[in-house]
Design a binder for these strands. Structure first.
Lengths: 353, 353
DNA sequence: CTGAAAGCGCTTACAG
DNA sequence: CTGAAAGCGCTTACAG
């Protein structure tokens, strides 16, 4: 009985019961104007009674509406291939969404050059996309961009990191504080009472530091909560070339009890290279992200742990959030924290970004 | 130009070019009989030239074919709620697949009683499903079941563990050997030279042991490869009640240097309970699976690490493999190993089964 | 404010 | 072996 009624529920049946045409039902369904209040209420009542669920497949086929999504994120670079993964996520989403008539335009910028970001946002807005996926690396410029999106009523989803004080449609990415907190926990198993820990922020753009500093904050909080007394040395290296890194690290290692190095981003591969050259692979090295370079050192046991946050999935889910909102008209979770994955020599083969 | 041609590609255009009706194109598309070889080849040629991609949305809408999937796995029980997660994965898939006309029938059995499995497989086959998701707990009975599925040409996807010597459509689950190997690596960071390790297999059904023994094998291999000399005590506990577990563990702990306990399945929660009662939470405890009970002890720092393999996703992906094969006619990866996740007090909040 | 009709790109009987 | 026609459940002009 229940089944039968379920079979019948469609615009046609609703129209029949309301004594109107399916066009009118469609108007109510989409809250379009041109329906008398009385008819509207009657139809809404029937929709409710029947617990009508629209057939998304039919809707997609009939509506030739083509949506345009735009993404803007850093380009993968010599310096770090991190951004290849999010782009892959975008590509995956694009492929799945293509059959629903959604196209995706990609705008990449140089994460060491905020001007390229501004330029790309301008180009992007000219295309008048229906939804935007944004990796907000530059706080100030991103704020301005958000302002424009708001004016044009274009929903924006953040990935990788959010934008302090701004709320887009959703954020998909790591909880940076917890990420640092976790690292501290992990490291607490590895250090002896007399060891020191060297925490390294390796980045050119100061702006990105709010990112790294959140991790440090989480780390320090854990350390204090636990009452650990090991020395914690923090260091900022403003150049990302091996030369500079080697210089600073070898100096630090000369006269100290450092036994653990914690790199707060994907530059851990560069540190691994340095440690290998210095013949100090005995040290424990922990860092971020699942990059090919890093995996090489993970296999060689130079890097001990990598903390990853599924960059590909971040982008994929971000795109799907736009789809849920814009196509399915579904509510979207405003914050979606990614799992914090710990990668080792043994499980890396099974890690899917 | 390219774009224009892409717009036009559909059965209609193919039919026009081949000078046939779209019905004939459809026949070729689905490799149905009733087309002369000459016509068939001509059409295939055009399909290739045009790089025709069928519109799945239209196809789904037009084809009122209703597929029936069946799943058979253990029921979640008092003893362990592990199987709740895979069922959730099935439910999630069911919801997404419903709109494509796919229904899912669930057959659950008691993992401590192989007769219930046999009974359920019989009931399942009577329904003549188009595809099956199977957690093959009982090797012999599962083999017989597979035989029947083969006779009826029903594709089967394994989850959780595969079936030695049998190949279904696909396997989605952990690489058990690597899982044990990883545990050993993790534990190697935690033990001091004088410590001993207690490895615990807690299970009633001997049959399931091939599962656990694979993990032990991986563990031992790592330990040997690395040349570690710490004592490794293995123990099988055939009852899963707290009483029995306490009895065995307290005996072991009495006179030994044991400092790490490694439980090879989800019964780690019971061990945690015992350790708490014995006031031996100073010991390091590592086990499997993301169960509520275990998380409680993880938070309390009684359990130190949990190794998880996304049971929910296993089932979800298994269902999707059936969909890819049966609906989209796409090739399916015959083995899909899950990532090996390490869960701690700090990252559990961000873990999605 | 409302409805009749065409159409989205396929599949499915049915007729020949 | 092949084709004309109806239909899947919606949306979209268009006419009134």
């Amino acid at each position: 009985m229940k089944k039968e009624s379920e079979e019948l529920v469609g615009v046609k049946e609703i129209a029949r019961r309301a004594n109107v045409s399916i066009a009118t039902v469609d108007r109510v369904l989409h809250d379009r104007p041109g329906v008398s209040l009385k008819t509207k209420e009657k139809i809404q009542q029937i929709i409710k009674e029947l617990n009508y669920q629209p057939n998304i497949v039919a809707r997609t086929l009939a509506s030739r509406k083509k949506l345009k999504f735009a993404i803007i994120m850093p380009a993968s670079s010599e310096e770090t291939s991190y951004w290849k993964a999010p782009l892959d996520g975008v590509l995956q989403a694009e492929q799945e969404l293509r059959q629903y008539g959604i196209s995706v335009e990609k705008y990449l910028f140089d994460q060491n050059n905020r001007k390229t970001f501004v330029k790309q946002t301008a180009a992007l807005l000219q295309q008048k996309p229906d939804g935007i996926l944004l990796a907000p690396m530059f706080v100030e410029e991103s704020n301005q961009f958000m302002q424009q999106c708001r004016e044009q009523s274009i929903p924006v989803v953040f990935i990788n990191s959010d934008l302090p004080g701004q709320s887009g449609l959703a954020y998909v990415g790591p909880d940076l504080y917890q990420s640092g907190y976790l690292s501290a926990h992990l490291i607490s198993y590895l250090v002896r009472p007399s060891d020191s820990i060297l925490m390294l922020h390796i980045t050119r753009e100061l702006e990105m530091d709010h990112h790294l500093l959140r991790k440090e904050e989480g780390f320090r909080t854990y350390w204090q909560e636990q009452g650990y007394t090991q020395e914690l040395i923090t260091m900022h290296i403003g150049q990302t070339d091996t030369e500079t890194i080697r210089h600073h690290i070898s100096r630090q290692l000369k006269n100290s009890s450092i036994r653990v190095l914690f790199v707060t981003n994907s530059r851990v591969a560069a540190v691994a290279k340095v440690l290998e050259e210095l013949d100090r692979t005995d040290l424990l090295l922990i860092g971020y992200d699942f990059l090919e370079d890093s995996i090489v050192y993970l296999k060689k046991n130079v890097i001990d742990f990598l903390i990853c946050q599924k960059p590909q999935e971040q982008a994929y889910l971000g795109m799907m959030a736009l789809y849920d909102k814009l196509v399915l008209n579904q509510p979207v979770k405003s914050v979606h924290f990614m799992p914090i994955d710990i990668i080792t020599r043994e499980n890396y083969l099974f890690y899917n970004n």
